[in-house]
Design a protein around this nucleic acid. Structure first.
Lengths: 457, 457
DNA sequence: CATGAAAGGTCAAAGGTCAT
DNA sequence: CATGACCTTTGACCTTTCAT
């Protein structure tokens, strides 16, 4: 049902439209097709999963640059004809625009022509690649598939977050004065709760569940300390000079045990304060958390490439969520180095307190925070030699974490409990496990009263 | 998808439509021209209607407003450039004209400028629609120079980098096979050289020189290990499974001392490899280096806010340098967490080797990499307690670094020497120094044969 | 051989420029 | 400042290529 009518251009044909004779484009002016960027990682990775049906009408039909109606994929991004033409012209003529403002112009259907710099930039950010613009007349056979960024979505992340959050704290922030100051035991208890929640959070992410058991365990172990710090920092955002734990205890800026106060001060100063200044949104937070979570460098990862892709997706999601404010994305990402540093210090502090007998560190904390040599006495000091990198563990030997990683989702009954219920008995055997020939094999039988990563999964 | 068969309106409307003559200017605003009630847009191709009577040349070639020669259809009416521009300006600026006569002025080529009220009214009557006037667009002329976020520029950073690079390595990468495998001493020697170059690099950045001495020392100390790793990773980019030191020794992937091989493997796997895949540019590299350098969280910083701003600028510069590839900026920034982690491990390794007597760590390395307690015997093991964060030092007590930070630039004579010359004697006293009341005060007199941060500055 | 997604091209009608 | 001759950019519409 097209307008088959060939262009018998009757209408106003000849009203002397003096067609501009100098209309020639300065073809090839400075055209330089980039030196074949060996398309780095981040390839398409067609969704191999089972159910990824709905391609989202909204996102597929809308131009990723200006939100006008899209006419298909062009140069790697779903876009309208206008942005398609604009991108081609810009690349062909090797245009270098400049923004008259502060390079954070809004680019939508109405305003897309107001700043070419910001429009072109958004084209690139939306996934357009200049390599996809072909040379003038000829056509290159390359039918490269544009990268479908991935399957990770903000929605899924936000839901996972909602499922694993303590609603009572969210709804009413009761008077701070009524809360008790945490002792070391309270802190450890809170950490344990939060780690269990982290496991539950991860299980809500389909892409995580598709990984192998070993990889899931490795990811959960790798950066758990950072998740604890990140979570506590976010929870403390509404308050001043106070850290609010997940179990409703608080750590004041000053006035706790000496050991805690150092870390607490850094959390407040180096994390809570910048996050307050940035006024981080929920969306941004879950993206950050996901970026931390899918750490491709953590040792023992079989499928590091898949994890890298997932982090890439999360990173791009964050970028897209923050595009309004110049420099915001970078500031948020740079907080991750601070987060890593603080988490490190916390782990060292915890390690020390355990060795000094000041803290009772149970097996889950041992496994996820201090390394896997849990259930041992504090005989071996993990000095520089034995554990040069506290946050990243050498291999994914099975242990507490290994058990239960295959467990089904446990519905959180009305969110009333902060602690996750211990996985229902049943399937305790995991035939897949002993892939690794870890030097030490432990057997943890006390899953009921001593949750571990494996039992939680 | 396609335009549904629109009601074929025979484009060539009759503008003669005499509209209510009592229109006031303000009424024009809401004016809905009757004649053309068809889809106004749809330019170009004519609907496949039957046979539209060929429009009168006269009406098509003549401006419907002033009867000047028309240049096409504009805003819905065949018109000349003058009336086109007049209409656009009037609508854009929302001009409200008034007729000084009786709103019956003749509007023709000669008199069209005599009454704006009547001219605009005639525009509307001829079928021009104010809706067809679009928003203001971007400027075409590109004479405007984009404003910078701050004072930091890529150029300055690139120059600083060029000044402090070993040109011999850059020009010809001689056969790798001829290079010797580094022993621990070679590594330490290379590190020392590179740290001196780092100081020199920093001094080439005006914004750095404007900081206080204490802050300069703090910055130089804070992340020097990361700079060493970053530098060595970049230098090793052209090779495979080999780390190339600044003094031309190499560290193979396997086959060195056990202590080095761990860190070396991580450098190759977690840094060199991703950097190769990303194919990092020189511009991007200096931005990354600058981001690492201006670390606002490093302790003892007086002017943390200024440093934060500088890092922000560097971060935005990197963003703009990478905007052509989606996700690239984020991937580069995320490498910094890896960098931090590897650097940490290296420091711990170095610390350990020093304690075991395997490495001879001189005072500059002590100060910049291991903390400031240099020139001491290895009596105090910097365990978790004493130095929970190896890369960041607690306070900026004066020491080796403190001396010489005020020294003038030392021209690098033809780049022949890798090592920086020791600052020319002269101004060795620094009256500003003892601001801090550090618990320990050392005096380093051996500036000549034992460079320190202060002596280098 | 037909089909459709995604390249390419066209050009009326927007926009902007800058002596006057 | 406004005008208008002259030039650029935009984007709706259309053709061509190529994998399926």
């Amino acid at each position: 049902m097209k307008i088959s009518g060939t262009s018998l251009d009757l209408s106003v044909t000849d009203y002397g439209i003096t067609l501009d004779p100098t209309f020639t484009m300065l073809e090839f002016d400075g055209l330089r097709v980039l030196p074949v960027q060996t398309d780095p990682l981040i390839p398409g990775h067609a969704p191999p999963s089972v159910a990824v049906p709905v391609p989202q009408q909204s996102s597929m039909n809308l131009c990723a640059i200006c939100a006008d109606r899209a006419t298909g994929k062009h140069y790697g991004a779903s876009s309208c004809d206008g942005c398609k033409g604009f991108f081609r012209r810009s690349v062909r003529k090797n245009h270098a625009y400049t923004c008259r403002f502060s390079r954070q112009c809004v680019v939508d259907k109405d305003k897309r022509n107001q700043c070419r710099y910001c429009r072109l930039r958004k084209c690139f950010r939306a996934g357009m690649r200049k390599e996809a613009v072909q040379n003038e007349r000829d056509r290159i056979s390359c039918r490269r598939e544009g990268q479908a960024v991935g399957t990770l979505t903000i929605d899924v992340l936000m839901q996972a977050e909602a499922f694993t959050q303590n609603p009572s704290q969210n709804l009413m922030m009761r008077d701070i004065n009524s809360k008790k100051i945490a002792c070391v035991g309270d802190v450890c208890e809170s950490m344990k709760q939060q780690l269990l929640l982290l496991v539950e959070w991860a299980k809500r992410i389909p892409e995580f569940c598709e990984l192998s058991v070993d990889d899931r365990v490795a990811l959960l172990r790798a950066h758990s300390a950072e998740h604890l710090i990140l979570g506590v920092a976010r929870r403390s955002l509404p308050y001043n000079d106070i850290i609010l734990l997940g179990n409703d205890f608080i750590i004041p800026f000053r006035g706790t045990e000496q050991e805690m106060s150092k870390v607490a001060a850094r959390i407040l100063e180096e994390l809570v304060r910048p996050l307050k200044e940035l006024n981080i949104t929920d969306t941004e937070f879950v993206c950050l958390k996901t970026i931390v979570f899918f750490a491709p460098d953590c040792p023992g990862l079989q499928c590091a490439q898949a994890v890298r892709r997932l982090r890439f997706q999360a990173q791009v999601l964050l970028d897209e969520s923050t595009s309004e404010q110049r420099g915001r994305f970078g500031e948020l990402l740079l907080l991750l180095t601070t987060l890593q540093s603080v988490a490190w210090q916390m782990v060292e502090q915890l390690q020390l307190m355990r060795l000094l007998g000041k803290a009772n560190v149970d097996s889950l904390l041992m496994e996820m925070l201090l390394g896997e040599e849990a259930t041992r006495g504090p005989e071996a000091l993990p000095a520089s030699e034995s554990n040069p990198e506290p946050l990243i563990f050498s291999t994914a030997t099975e242990s507490v974490l290994s058990r239960g990683i295959l467990t089904e989702h446990i519905p959180m009954h009305n969110f009333t409990s902060v602690i996750l219920p211990v996985p229902s008995s049943g399937l305790s055997e995991d035939p897949l496990l002993p892939t690794h020939t870890g030097p030490e094999v432990f057997t943890h039988g006390q899953a009921a009263d001593m949750p571990t990563v494996h039992t939680c999964l």
